[in-house]
């Protein structure tokens, strides 16, 4: 079997190759969700679409924010804003491992010289009330992806089971491109008239957000926003299903879920500001999980969630 050995030359080329690879395998290539999230899993294309019986296949880039990981752009590997590449296929196809390995080949990882391993790593998201079994995938000892068979999401058993692949794009790209510091990584073609590095694009924002996340974000306002998002989520879901204006049955699972995402991200910000104690932490996570479960309950009553129309 001929390996694809031509190496990508930039961060964006790796993304583009993944997009075209998964498009070629039949996934709907979606766009990032337009809200702040901690990981690609939060995108409704994963969280909500992994519920219910309807088949689904999606792939997308998701900008992700983890305020506590901010290092003012100085750490070679850590960022408070980074990109995940996410693939979700339901039901998980029998050859998903092979499809996944194909995607590594597509970005220039030659199995003839590299060592790929599937190492046990069970995934759990306490805020989403979700868990699954799978692996972290190692390439020469480095974790390049998380591979999970979803068993439960939002407190609901997954039937059928979705297979989820999550690539940490910066880390993967740094490895493929042989870069030691993320800020030195070519973002676009290094031979382009205006060649941009990852640092050109993101060093300043990492600094700005690190300062804001850690020291400036107004915690009183954030606390209030958390409460408001929580209340709004519940208010949306408490509406009767029949819309009095159109006369249609409209369950607003997605707008409610937006509020859940918002609450989750505000919690992460509060955490970075250090105003949440160990005991409170569990309570906040429990509150977000309660919202996620209610949204899941609502979604499975909708058509996309597999309910008979």
């Amino acid at each position: 079997m001929a390996e694809q050995s031509d190496k990508p030359r930039s961060f964006q080329e790796i993304i583009l190759r993944l997009q075209s690879y998964w498009a070629g395998k039949g996934c709907a290539v979606m766009q990032p969700y337009d809200m702040e999230v901690g990981a690609g899993t939060f995108h409704p294309a994963t969280t909500l679409r992994s519920l219910g019986s309807k088949p689904w296949a999606a792939a997308y880039v998701q900008p992700s924010r983890r305020p506590t990981d901010g290092r003012y752009g100085e750490n070679p590997n850590r960022l408070q804003h980074y990109y995940q590449y996410q693939v979700l296929i339901k039901p998980s196809p029998p050859d998903l491992q092979e499809l996944y390995l194909g995607s590594l080949r597509a970005i220039g990882i030659d199995m003839g010289v590299h060592d790929i391993r599937f190492v046990e790593d069970d995934w759990e998201s306490p805020t989403l009330g979700a868990w699954g079994l799978g692996w972290e995938v190692w390439c020469d000892g480095m974790e390049v992806s998380q591979y999970t068979y979803f068993q439960q999401v939002g407190g609901h058993d997954c039937h059928p089971v979705s297979g989820e692949l999550t690539y940490g794009l910066e880390r993967l790209a740094m490895y493929v491109l042989g870069i030691d510091h993320v800020m030195d990584m070519p973002f676009n073609d290094p031979d382009a008239p205006i060649a941009l590095s990852y640092g050109d694009v993101f060093r300043q924002t990492e600094e700005e957000y690190s300062r804001w996340n850690f020291d400036v974000a107004n915690t009183e306002v954030l606390l209030r926003h958390f409460e408001e998002a929580e209340a709004e989520c519940e208010a949306i879901l408490s509406q009767q299903h029949d819309d009095p204006k159109t006369g249609k049955r409209i369950i607003m699972a997605h707008p409610a879920y937006d509020q859940c995402i918002k609450a989750s991200h505000i919690f992460n910000l509060l955490d970075a500001r250090g105003v949440i104690s160990v005991t409170e932490r569990q309570a906040y996570i429990g509150r977000v999980r309660a919202l996620a479960k209610k949204c899941a309950d609502a979604f499975v009553q909708t058509e996309a969630g597999g309910a008979a129309a």
């Binding site: 070679p76 199995m111 590299h114 020469d140 000892g141 480095m142 490895y175 030691d180």
Partner: peptide
């Protein structure tokens, strides 16, 4: 978990890099 044409040179270099990080 595999033998390679370069006798593991790439694998070792990768592992060393991860270890350094």
């Amino acid at each position: 978990n595999t033998r390679t044409a370069d006798h593991g040179a790439t694998i070792l270099a990768g592992n060393q890099k991860v270890l350094s990080a």
